[in-house]
């Protein structure tokens, strides 16, 4: 897979610690929602550093967007979040990733659980769903420390708000939980993800997953092969994903239906 040069068309600050970089990448082969790219930076003396970043844009989007969260002690992310300017060139290769992808043809219902910037690849899925005018039922629960860190908040409200201008909106439900700073008069979730929260948000696992030989088969395979058509994607810091995946399994969701992507030190 060759490195390509992408030119930064624009950047936009999403939250105090994250930036979306919009790139024109000549020859970009297209991607599936949920995939990522490798980004490589080269210093003047030839020193290089590369990292993987989730693609935020839908495959239908004319430009490639990555949304990067700053790791304070990071080497690459502070540069991407704070220093990149329109016109800069970045080396990219991809798209990369197979299991953690979704397209409307895969069907649903879709259950998406995000911790922090783990919402980025899930946003690509929801943008793809909207671009296709799909009404596949979808739910997104996004856990963030504080409201100001809720990436894509306004866009998600629009997509889920029953606005006729936002296709598929009636069948998309989005909820946030704030783990550290809770706005006044907030009536939603205000704690780390737990069992009761998952029950309240997602309800019970589809019946086909809960019992029977299909569940037993699925329990021994990463490939989904049981009666349910549910698709579950969990992305976030390792402890969040570990908790979410365990809660889902304990509630009868087939392990083979649960796709995870973890980041950060354990």
């Amino acid at each position: 897979m060759d490195w390509r040069i992408g030119t930064v068309r624009e950047t936009s600050r999403e939250t105090p610690r994250s930036t979306t970089i919009v790139l024109d990448v000549p020859g970009w082969p297209g991607h599936r929602a949920g995939q990522h790219v490798d980004v490589r930076l080269t210093a003047e003396d030839g020193y290089q550093a590369q990292r993987s970043y989730s693609i935020a844009s839908a495959p239908e989007d004319a430009a490639l967007r990555i949304t990067v969260d700053r790791l304070d002690d990071g080497e690459v992310s502070p540069f991407l979040v704070d220093d990149v300017l329109p016109g800069d060139e970045l080396e990219l290769r991809g798209p990369i990733g197979g299991p953690f992808t979704w397209s409307v043809d895969d069907g649903g219902p879709l259950l998406l659980l995000a911790g922090g910037s783990g919402v980025v690849p899930l946003m690509a899925m929801l943008r793809h769903r909207a671009a296709q005018g799909s009404d596949v039922p979808a739910r997104l629960l996004h856990s963030v420390r504080a409201p100001r860190e809720a990436l894509f908040h306004r866009e998600l409200l629009a997509l889920s708000g029953g606005d006729p201008a936002a296709p598929g909106s009636a069948s998309l439900q989005v909820a946030w939980t704030y783990t550290r700073m809770v706005p006044p008069e907030w009536t939603g979730f205000a704690r780390r993800l737990d069992g009761p929260m998952l029950d309240a948000f997602a309800g019970p696992a589809p019946a086909a997953d809960a019992t029977g030989p299909a569940a037993a088969m699925a329990a021994d395979g990463l490939s989904a092969g049981n009666g349910s058509t549910e698709r579950i994607f969990v992305c976030g810091p390792s402890p969040f994903v570990e908790t979410a995946a365990s809660l889902l399994v304990a509630r009868g969701h087939a392990p083979g239906r649960i796709h995870t992507e973890r980041f950060g030190p354990s």
Binding site: W3, R40, T42, A43, D88, L90, E91
Partner: peptide, 27 residues
């Protein structure tokens, strides 16, 4: 490869010959 404007990077704080190409040191 093109030089990335403004990128300095952080050289590994360990023997660089132990870090394969494209990798970085993680504690």
């Amino acid at each position: 490869p093109p030089i990335t404007r403004g990128f300095r990077g952080r050289r590994p704080d360990v023997d660089p010959s132990r870090i394969p190409p494209g990798q970085h040191h993680e504690r």
